[in-house]
Every structure is written in C-alpha cells, then in structure tokens.
Design a binder for these strands. Sequence first.
DNA 1: AACAAAACAACAATCGATTGTATTTTTTTT
DNA 2: AAAAAAAATACAATCGATTGTTGTTTTGTT
Lengths: 334, 334
Amino acid sequence: MAKRVTMAELAKAANVDASTVSRALNDSPLVKQATKQHVMNVAADLGYVMHASARSLRRQSSETIGMVIPMRPESGQTISDPFFLEMVGAASNAASSHGYDLIVSVPEGDQKIAERRLLQTGRADGLIIIGQAGRTDRLNKLGRLSDRIVVWGGQTPDTNYTIVGSDNVRGGELATEHLFSRGRQNIVFIGETNLPEVRLRYEGLKKAYKAAGRVHSDALLLEQNFGGKDTFDAVRQLTSGGTAFDAIFAASDVLAMTAIHALQASGKSVPGDVSVVGYDNIGQSSLMTPALTTVDQHIAEGGKLMVDLLLKKLAGGEVRSRTTSTELIVRDSS
Amino acid sequence: MAKRVTMAELAKAANVDASTVSRALNDSPLVKQATKQHVMNVAADLGYVMHASARSLRRQSSETIGMVIPMRPESGQTISDPFFLEMVGAASNAASSHGYDLIVSVPEGDQKIAERRLLQTGRADGLIIIGQAGRTDRLNKLGRLSDRIVVWGGQTPDTNYTIVGSDNVRGGELATEHLFSRGRQNIVFIGETNLPEVRLRYEGLKKAYKAAGRVHSDALLLEQNFGGKDTFDAVRQLTSGGTAFDAIFAASDVLAMTAIHALQASGKSVPGDVSVVGYDNIGQSSLMTPALTTVDQHIAEGGKLMVDLLLKKLAGGEVRSRTTSTELIVRDSS
DNA sequence: AACAAAACAACAATCGATTGTATTTTTTTT
DNA sequence: AAAAAAAATACAATCGATTGTTGTTTTGTT
C-alpha cells in the first residue's frame, strides 16, 4: 500500500491551499461547492486519509473514548464474564457510529493510573467505567474530571458523576415476586452486598418480602463476590446445612450457573427442589440446562446509552443518571 | 483537576529548554543525571503528563494497537461468545504491559473500512484481527500492510501474514481419540468447515478416524456456523432422524452447550446416551451441567502471544506463525 | 595554563492538521 | 462602470512534543 499522503501533498495536487483542503473535507461553508467536490475527488484519487494524531493535537480532542474494566482481584470477577463483552461490543458500536474509537483498558493493578493515563494524556476525551465497585468516594473526588466520566453501576445518591445501570431494586423485586408466584418461600440471595448494584438488588428482594408481609432472614443471605470461586462450596454447604430454602436469587448469571451446578452436585433438582433466578441475561443463559430464568438488564442498551450520554456531556450538555429497562425473562430454572 | 501543563511550561518552571525536558523525561544520555532528576521533580510537582497526540504526531507512532473483531452477520457468531472477551482482556493486558493501548473495533459492516481507518489514520501502529474467516485471499492482498498485522485463526499455507491460533488439527485429534477411548463410535462434528480453523479441527477428527482404521461418514458432519441459531433445531432433527450417533464434537463451547441443550430436550442424556466435547474452554465450561469436556486452546496465552509478535514485527523483527498449546480438558460431558 | 575533547544544554525545524485573519475574486448595487 | 459588499481562497500561526545541529561548559591532557 502506498505511503501516507499528507494534506499538503493533497493540496498541491488539487491546486489549492491546505487550509482550503481542510475546510473542504470538513464541509465548511467557507468553501465553494465546486471546490469541495474537486478536493474530494483528488483526495479519493490519492487515497488520502487524515492523520488522526495531527487532527487530535490541533483540535485538542482525540475522538476516542476509554472504557475501563477494573479487574479487582478481591472481587474475583474474571474478565470471562460475558457481561463485560456485551458492554464492550455495544459501546464500540455506539462509539463508532459517532465516529469515535474505543480504547479498552483492563487494568490489573491500580485503576487510577489507567484513568489518569487515558484522560490526562488526551488519549481519550471521556471515560466509561464499568462498576463503581465501592469506590464511590474516590470517584466523587474526581471533581472536574467527573464531567468526562460515565459509570456503570447502581444508582447511588450524592454522587457527582453520571451513573447508568439497570433498575436494580426493581430487578430484585421482579425476581422475588416471580419466585413467590411459583410458591417459593425461602429465597437465598447470593451476591456481594457491599457493591452498590448488588445491594440494591438485595433491597429489591427485601422490599418484595415486606410487601408480602414477611421479612427476609439474614440466614438466607449468602455473601459471595462475583468470582464465584467459593460459591460452589458455599452452596453445597448450605444444602447440607440446616437452613431450609427452596429458591436462589443470584446477583449474576454466572453465580446462578455455579449455584445450579452445586445444587445438582448435591442431588437437588432445579427447578424441582429449588428454583433459581439469575441476573444479566447473558447470551448463554438460554443455553444452560435448565435454561436460566433471569433479570435482563439490557446490557447492550446500557452500553449504547453510556456512550450517548458521555458524548452529550463532552458537548457540554447537562446529563442525569439513567436506568436501562429491566425485565424478567422466565425460563426453565424457576 | 488542574489544567493541562504543557512541556514548555514545565521547561520554564524548571529553568531549562523544552528539548532538555523532553530528553530528560525520555532518559536520554544527552542529559546530565542531576538535570534529569530536577526535571522529573518539577514535573511531578506540576502534575505534568505528556500529551499523547503531540508525541504520536512527532514520533509517527501511536503506541496503540487495534483489535478488530469482525461480526460477520452470516457467521451468526455474536459478540457475546466469551471467547472474544478473553482475547480482549489478554491482549489489553499484554499491550499495556508494553505501554501500548488497545483500541477495540467491532465492525458490523465493512471490516475493511475499520482496518484502513485504524492503520492509515495512524490511530493504531498495528492490528490484531480475530478470525481470518474465509477471507484469506483478501488478507493476503494487504501486502505491505501485512507486516503490521497478526491474525488469530487456523494455520493456513501460503499466507503472507502472521497467524496465531491453537493447533487445531491436534485439538480435533485429541477430542476424537478421547471419545474413542470412552467407547464412542459415531461422532457428529458440528461446525462451519469453510472456516480454516474449523476445517482443521475436522481434519484432526478424520485423522484420528483414519488412525483407528475407520472413515468418518459425511452423514455425521453437521454444518453449522458459530451463531448456533439453528443448531438447536438441527441437533433435535438429527436425534429424531435415522442417523445413529453416540457422540458430538462441537467446534466451540457455545455450540456444544446448544447441542447438549437440544439433546436433553430430546430426552437424551449427556453423557449417558451421547458424549459431548467442545472447543475453547471458556470460563463457563466448568459451570455447565454437565461440566463440559473441551479442548483448551489457551486463549489468554494466544492474546498475549499476538501482542508480543505484533510488537516484534513493528520493531522490524522477523516473525513466524505460531500455535498455542492445545490440551484436552476432561469433564463430565463425555 | 593553554588547548583539545567530551559532556551538556539551547536553538530551531518539524510532524500534519486546523483556524483566525488578510487578500483576492466574484457578485451586487447604484 | 465604479464602488461596496459578499464570497472564496491564501497566508500564517498554532497545537505539544521530538530531534538534528549549534553553541557553551566542563573535564581532561600535556
């Protein structure tokens, strides 16, 4: 493939000044229609493509947004949770439909460095952060930077950054009401409740209990991070222990899968003995055995929404936090 | 957060010329040790961070690599296949350990545009493309561009680009030999054999058949793309049809999951009636019911390898195609 | 102490585009 | 047809860093 053609060369070839070329290609009203056409023809002939860095430097904008997917070692959540990829895919598409690129950063270590690096070096004009993950205070401290950031997570009061996420309380309610309607009484909640999004789901569950005139016992709260490493054992233990339960509501589909696996290993049938409901509706949910009943938080919609809101913020618009539509998908596991 | 500090400002603050600052920060031998230290101190004080575009423009290198994940509508493979995310995660980490960023592009439409856009605009110094997907001829035509590209896929003769992938033939053999060792005789192969990587897996299967003095019947070849949309129905049909089979070897874990689901819906037990082996060893494989026997192609290793090879190519090194270690993971489904 | 050599730092050009301003060309007005 | 107004284009500075070259110190040699 040919060497890079520069704008100056293109200008010479088209017999106009570089400034005219620039304006022509950017469809400025200062250039005559005929000239624009001519310039574009010559550009096409020469196979001209604009140099991104030069434009970024001059414009002070990279037309790139960063997506930070923090792999907190302590959360145990692994990158292989399909949840993330659906986010990446949706965001990448949304970004490119606006002419933006998406830089994906999966910091293993200090996330703050990744964020600074992307924003302050001008590599990214704005940032999408997946999961506030108990770092609300730190995110709040970002101050002025916060109007270049959108976070995926649970709606939290008193934050000065924009949050997008599913209606976690409603999701928890939906799942719980559904299990009640199936005649289930004692629902084990699996998740790490110090994460805002998870805590809200749990609150939704408690809200539904309350509406049914009941109280959710703490014995039915199984604190488990997203990794699910020990979840298998924890569920087996629960099964053999004295706690009576006939349903499980897990904070993610992957946790739900693990739970089902553990139940079956303990000789319990799903949904015969225990109904299970997950959260996310990842692509594989419908392929599991039994197919997973789950709360669909419309990840793709969320990814696109985050990009749209971020670009609006970058353009100086006022933007409020938003929730994605949240809906129960009933399948065989409940 | 403070306004952007420019290098000129930093130079003034440190009482040296900008060129000296630049050399100091880049650890050039042309600057005295004491001066370096001084400059770095002042830089830290002012919270200086280098502007990426300016450096890219001058250096003619973006320190960024692009990853193109083509969503061929006809392949039906969706972004939600965890396979991709493991790639993204591994590549992102490998890239950032070299100080590079990773731009992820998931083109829905014309992939060629995405590639050109990334390389020719200088946004990315090199490209990782996931899946040659029957476009070997086109990729070959990239010519000079090809020394900025590494492709994930099946080892194919007569390509002028670098390929990284698992040892697909060996993987097919391993799966098949294992099923034979379980006493299985008639193995259905599920996959789209016009994709190089899939075809090679199938060839591995046939090779194992041949080694056992047998021939694989075409009736046991179930042509299915990665999407798996119709795979469920196809497997059910196969089950109710006249074809006798006692095992399935699927070209991906997601396909295997779908197959298991269909078998169970048809009243067959896995592995009682039919043994199933998948390919990929995605994170969920061990959480399925039954847990999936699968060929681990060490995706993370592959992602890292691709980045390493790409950077070596960019540095002018000579690089040959490589395979990742390929290993059978035996679980309950077989 | 005088000179050469080596080490260090400043000067100035450059990467490729964008944009405010000046200049030329075209159109409109009288 | 001349003057004024509007439109189109050219000129030149600029974004923030890097790097070849020149100039200045420092160090070393005899």
